[in-house]
C-alpha cells in the first residue's frame, strides 16, 4: 500500500516548565488574593486590638506554627499515617470488590446496598461505637477513615468496569479471549480513569474521616493526631496553636489532592481526554 497517509499526528510536544501567560495568571491571581486577605486580617486584628484568644493574626499563627513545630509535626505524622493507610486499604478493597461486582451480578446485587448504608451513615455517629468495640485506638481510627474513603472508589470503579466498549467486548469474544484476559486487558484499563477519579475524592475523605475519628476519640485516646492538638489547644485557650494545627490540616488536604491529581495525570496523560489538558482535541 503506497498511498500517502491522510492527515498527520498533530501532537506538538507540550511545553514543560515554561509557562504561558495564562498559566502564570492562574498561579498569580489566587496568590495575590491570598496575600490581600492575610494582610487585611492582620490589619484588622491590630487595628481593633482583638485579643489573640479570640482571633490571632496570621503572623501570630505562623509564630505558633514555628514554635510548636516539634509537637505539631509529630501529630501531623500520626494523622498522615492514619489517612494514608486508610486510603491504601480503601483503594485495594474498593478495587477488589468492584472487580467481584463486575464478575458476578449476584455479588453486586447482594452487597451493594450495604456499601451504600456504610456510605450514608454519618461517620460521627458510628465513630464512638467503633472506638468502643475496637480496643486498639490506632486501628479504630483507621477503620473510621476507611469507611469514609471506601465508597467513592468502589462506586466509581464499578461504573468504570461496566462502561467497557461493547464492540471491544465483541472483539475479545471473537478472538476467544478468556474471562481473565477480558478483565485484565479490557475492563481494568477502561476502569482506570474512573478508579483514579474515585481515589482523588477518597484522598480528601480519608483525611476528614481520620480527623473526625480523632475528635471523637478525643483526649481519651493515646494517639495524638492533629485533631487532638486542636482540642487540646482549645481547652488551653492556645488559639494561635489551634489555628496552626488547622493550617496543617488544610495543607495536608491540599497536598493529598495535588499528589493524587499528579498520579492520575501521569498514568493517563498519554491516552485519556481528562489528562490531556488544553490544546487541540480530536
Amino acid at each position: 500500500m503506497s498511498e500517502a497517509v491522510e492527515g498527520a499526528p498533530s501532537e506538538a510536544p507540550r511545553p514543560g516548565l515554561a509557562m504561558a501567560p495564562e498559566a502564570w495568571l492562574r498561579v498569580l491571581a489566587p496568590v495575590v488574593i491570598g496575600l490581600l486577605v492575610l494582610g487585611g486580617w492582620e490589619w484588622l486584628v491590630r487595628a481593633r486590638e482583638i485579643p489573640p484568644y479570640i482571633l490571632p493574626g496570621p503572623i501570630a499563627i505562623a509564630q505558633a506554627l514555628v514554635r510548636d513545630w516539634g509537637t505539631l509535626s509529630a501529630s501531623l505524622l500520626v494523622t498522615l499515617k492514619t489517612t494514608g493507610l486508610a486510603l491504601l486499604v480503601a483503594a485495594a478493597l474498593g478495587l477488589l470488590l468492584a472487580v467481584a461486582f463486575a464478575q458476578s451480578r449476584i455479588v453486586e446485587l447482594s452487597l451493594f446496598p450495604y456499601a451504600v448504608i456504610l456510605q450514608v451513615t454519618p461517620i460521627v455517629a458510628i465513630a464512638p461505637l467503633i472506638i468502643i468495640w475496637v480496643n486498639d485506638v490506632t486501628l479504630s481510627l483507621l477503620i473510621c477513615a476507611w469507611i469514609v474513603a471506601f465508597f467513592p472508589i468502589l462506586s466509581n470503579t464499578t461504573v468504570g468496569l461496566n462502561s467497557t466498549d461493547h464492540n471491544l467486548l465483541d472483539l475479545f469474544r471473537l478472538y476467544g479471549a478468556s474471562r481473565w484476559q477480558v478483565l485484565w486487558r479490557l475492563r481494568l484499563p477502561t476502569a482506570m480513569p474512573f478508579f483514579l477519579a474515585g481515589l482523588r475524592i477518597s484522598g480528601g475523605l480519608a483525611l476528614i474521616g481520620a480527623i473526625v475519628a480523632e475528635f471523637v476519640a478525643g483526649t481519651g485516646g493515646n494517639a495524638s493526631g492533629l485533631a487532638y492538638r486542636i482540642l487540646e489547644a482549645g481547652y488551653q485557650l492556645q488559639i494561635p496553636r489551634m489555628f496552626a494545627a488547622l493550617v496543617l490540616v488544610s495543607g495536608t488536604g491540599i497536598a493529598i489532592f495535588l499528589a493524587l491529581s499528579l498520579l492520575s495525570h501521569l498514568l493517563l496523560r498519554r491516552w485519556h481526554e481528562s489528562a490531556m489538558g488544553g490544546g487541540e482535541r480530536r
Binding site: N167, L168, L171, Y175, A177, R185, L186, P189, W271, H272
Partner: peptide, 26 residues
C-alpha cells in the same frame, strides 16, 4: 477478521499494541 463501524481501538494502547492484540490473545 472483523472491522466495526467505529475503529474500536483500545485508547490506552499504541497502534502497534492494538494490532498485536489478536495475536497476544491467541
Amino acid at each position: 477478521g472483523f472491522v466495526f463501524q467505529e475503529p474500536t481501538l483500545m485508547p490506552w494502547a499504541t497502534a502497534q499494541a492494538n494490532v498485536a492484540l489478536p495475536l497476544e490473545l491467541a
